[in-house]
Computed example of a mutant assay.
Amino acid sequence: MPFKMIDKNQKNIATFIHLSTFSRFLFPLGNFIGPIVLWVANKDKSDFIDAHGKQAINFQISILLYAIILGMITIPLFVFNLFNGFNFLDIDAFNSIHISLTKPSPLLYITGGLGFIAVVGFILELVFIVKASLAAKEGKYYKYPLTINFLK
Rank of each mutant, 00 (worst) to 15 (best):
I63A: 15
Q60H: 00
T21G: 12
Y66H: 05
F27W: 01
F122P: 00
F94Q: 06
V119I: 14
S62N: 12
I17V: 06
K8R: 13
F3R: 10
L134R: 14
L82W: 06
I6A: 05
L64W: 02
I17S: 02
I36E: 02
V37K: 06
K43V: 08
K140F: 08
K137Q: 09
N84V: 03
T147Q: 09
D90Q: 14
H18G: 02
N81K: 00
K43T: 06
F59Q: 10
K45P: 07
F122A: 10
L65Y: 06
K8Q: 15
I49K: 02
I36W: 04
F150D: 07
G85P: 07
K8H: 13
F122R: 01
F32A: 04
M72H: 00
L151S: 03
H18C: 05
P104W: 05
T102C: 08
V40D: 07
K54C: 07
F88Q: 05
F3H: 14
I57P: 01
I148K: 08
L126F: 13
K140L: 08
N58F: 06
I6M: 08
I17L: 05
V127A: 10
I17P: 06
F78T: 14
P106T: 05
I75N: 01
F27P: 00
N87K: 10
A51Q: 07
L107M: 13
P145L: 05
L89C: 05
S100Y: 15
T21Q: 09
K103I: 11
F86V: 12
W39H: 09
L65H: 12
I110H: 02
L146I: 14
N12G: 09
K131C: 03
P28K: 03
N95L: 12
L89D: 15
A118H: 05
S96T: 15
K143D: 13
K131T: 02
K8W: 10
N58R: 04
S23E: 02
I97V: 15
S96F: 13
A56G: 11
P145A: 06
F128H: 11
A132L: 01
K143Q: 14
A51C: 01
L26F: 13
F32L: 14
E138L: 08
S133Q: 01
N12L: 15
S23H: 04
T147W: 09
A132G: 07
V37I: 15
K131S: 07
P106D: 05
K152A: 11
N84D: 14
P145N: 10
Y109L: 11
